[in-house]
């Protein structure tokens, strides 16, 4: 009973932390999306120089551990005399890191859409930019949803790492509660774990629905077609 009370009492603080966790997730994914999709197009359509620069960028951000990136941005900014809050440093470090991963998702999608679609749209007189906006982008966004769902889950869970910069996201809120109440730490961690699980699960469900909603008719798998017939 005491245990249940402890969970109940800790919920407001944990949920407050959860909001920060969600803010971080949106910020990381948003920055990662904008940068990632731009460099994916650069990687496919850019000239040699652009391709090389992007490939170096992408390799660096994928090779360095997240925690190290967080420290590098936070302390690095201070070192060169720029004052960045922990929140902004975290957004830059984790957002750019996610952009490296997201660029690979989008690059694969652009390549699988193929040159033919670009050729067709150029042939009716569309500029390259318009072709990207009206022909390529709508297709790659659809194709990317499954892999992107995965990236969403990873980024959401990795927000717990910014704990190390002192940002009071959910995990740090949990630590505060434990310190304050001399409570059962395991119980708090389990509660936090359950909240993380629910967030990831709900998010994945949401993207699953999105995928279904935007599915291009005619591409259903055989099972789905037969499923429809069976109903």
């Amino acid at each position: 009973m005491d245990n249940l009370m402890l969970i109940w009492d800790s919920l407001p603080a944990l949920l407050k932390g959860m909001l920060v966790t969600l803010q971080l997730t949106f910020a990381f994914l948003g920055l990662g999306f904008l940068v990632g999709i731009s460099i994916a197009f650069g990687q496919v359509y850019g000239n040699k120089l652009i391709k090389t620069v992007i490939s170096v960028y992408e390799k660096i951000f994928r090779a360095i551990p997240a925690l190290v990136l967080l420290f590098l941005f936070y302390f690095g900014a201070a070192f060169i005399g720029i004052k960045l809050s922990a929140f902004i440093s975290a957004c830059l470090a984790m957002g750019l890191r996610s952009s490296a991963y997201q660029s690979q998702i989008f690059r694969g999608a652009i390549q699988s859409v193929g040159k033919e679609q670009m050729m067709a749209s150029r042939s009716i007189g569309m500029s390259q930019f318009k072709s990207i906006i009206y022909v390529i982008l709508p297709q790659i966004l659809r194709l990317s949803i499954p892999s992107w769902t995965n990236e969403f889950a990873i980024v959401l869970k990795d927000t717990s790492l910014v704990y190390a910069l002192g940002i009071t996201e959910m995990l740090r809120q949990g630590r505060y509660i434990i310190a304050r109440t001399y409570g059962n730490s395991l119980l708090i961690y389990i509660t936090a774990a359950v909240i993380y699980f629910i967030l990831v699960f709900a998010g994945s469900k949401f993207f699953g629905l999105l995928e279904k909603k935007f599915k291009i008719p005619g591409y259903e798998t055989k099972e789905e077609k037969e499923g429809v017939r069976a109903v």
């Binding site: 033919e116 050729m119 067709a120 749209s121 042939s123 009716i124 022909v135 709508p138 297709q139 291009i216």
Partner: peptide
Amino acid sequence: QMGMVFQHFNLFAH
């Protein structure tokens, strides 16, 4: 001013 028709149609899939 030049329409092009492709071997593999290349319709916009979406």
